[in-house]
Design a protein around this nucleic acid. Structure first.
Lengths: 229, 229
DNA sequence: CCAAAAGTGTTTCACTTACACCCATGA
DNA sequence: TCATGGGTGTAAGTGAAACACTTTTGG
């Protein structure tokens, strides 16, 4: 025990890069800092890890506290520990990235955030600390992961059309996909369930709605199947 | 500033899962702990992060200090922060994984390690803390990464035969590969340079030796080429 | 001359890509 | 009836997988 207390300790925080997709644009949830350092500057939601909680729990808690956004798919991204990344002294941060499907719900600022809002990933404001670097890594990871894991479904409502799904992939990967090939591919994976329902109140032919079949997906991956788009 | 000091801080350590390949077996570098807790138990090399060094530097330093193994390709793996993972109190550890090509060199124990040795990944001894879990994740990551990034070359001497390279992949992926297809594939990538040299003192036809062409590889990846085996 | 590994091509099959038109619906 | 997106099939090309024998060398 003594040994571990011989050294001064860095402070430990968590930060969250939360993605949403809205009208074909990739969005990121930011807060406006209400406290120094970087008071008034936009930043990732996050804060100090408590002594009795896991890192995952700290990330979810801080996100909820500062933005009132909960029920998020969160996954650890990377730990940033450059000695001068925080002007207050040594602060190491464990970064998370998350996916939400309800961009339409306005986030609510709280605790040490004076505002919370969705920003388009393509034109972010200047960010506090090294948060720009964290966001870059998160986008890179999202792009890589969306191709071999079905995390895209976390960004959509539970029932969605194939066109919505395709738009999502186009948004995240930032390139156009062929409609017929895309449909052939995803339907061929057999991880979508046709709900039998169609879109409502659209001024055109209504699209078929599907749900993601989590159970089937898990079963297939166990048998060594390989999701890829 | 005050804010960051209101909270008690977890201690912060780094731990390294260092891989080597020897005679067709995947090996991991372990130390025997010379201090409590878990004195006499095998564990991953690692230790406390200093206030003025990056996390990467801390990992390399601890590895060198405890095992005298240096010049290692090290990459951050994951951060483990379960509240009870260390009996001394809250200790969060940033885990790294590394690759070495000189398994034949005996590691040398030092500082708080009473011994250092290579263990076969297939039959590790009981490990201290949650190090078993860390090793599992590292193996999973190594398997995934070796397929789409040329990190395998870090595990071989600078000049190697195609058979050595194939054995390496077979070891890491734990399955057999077809000789002709393997050679066609890797030579087709055009990232190997034929050194013109052959094996020496082998009681059979001597194999051609190759080097990995780092420059060519970087150039190709910039142009959007995709390494995959 | 024997043992041991080096080296070498072809065929088959699956998957990816490119590509254009008719259909259903609400306004 | 028109505008809008929904929905559909085929052919060509590319890459992966399966598969066996000859060559070289040292002992």
């Amino acid at each position: 025990m003594a040994y571990s207390y011989e050294y001064p300790r860095p402070a430990l925080t968590v930060d969250c890069v939360v993605f949403g997709v809205d009208e074909g644009a990739l969005k990121i949830l930011l807060i406006e800092r209400g406290e120094d350092p970087f008071k008034g500057c936009w930043a990732l939601p996050g804060g100090f890890v408590r002594m009795d909680e896991t890192l995952d729990a700290a990330a979810a808690r801080e996100l909820k506290e500062e933005t009132n956004v909960g029920k998020v798919y969160l996954e650890q991204l990377y730990t940033f520990g450059a000695p001068k990344r925080d002007p207050r002294g040594r602060v190491v941060t464990v970064a998370y990235y998350g996916l939400v499907n309800r961009v339409e719900h306005q986030p609510q600022a709280a605790t040490d955030a004076s505002a919370a809002a969705w920003y388009s990933a393509a034109k972010l404001p200047k960010l506090a600390f090294d948060h720009k670097e964290i966001v870059s890594l998160a986008i890179e990871r999202l792009r890589a992961k969306v191709r071999y894991a079905p995390i895209g479904f976390e960004l959509l409502p539970s029932k969605f059309s194939l066109t919505q799904l395709q738009r999502l992939y186009e948004t995240v990967l930032d390139r156009e996909l062929d409609k017929r090939n895309f449909r052939k591919k995803v339907l061929g994976l057999e991880i979508l369930i046709d709900t039998g329902e169609t879109e409502k109140n659209v001024p055109r032919r209504a699209a078929q709605l599907y749900r993601f079949d989590r159970k089937k997906y898990r079963q297939l991956t166990r048998d060594g199947f390989n999701f890829e788009i």
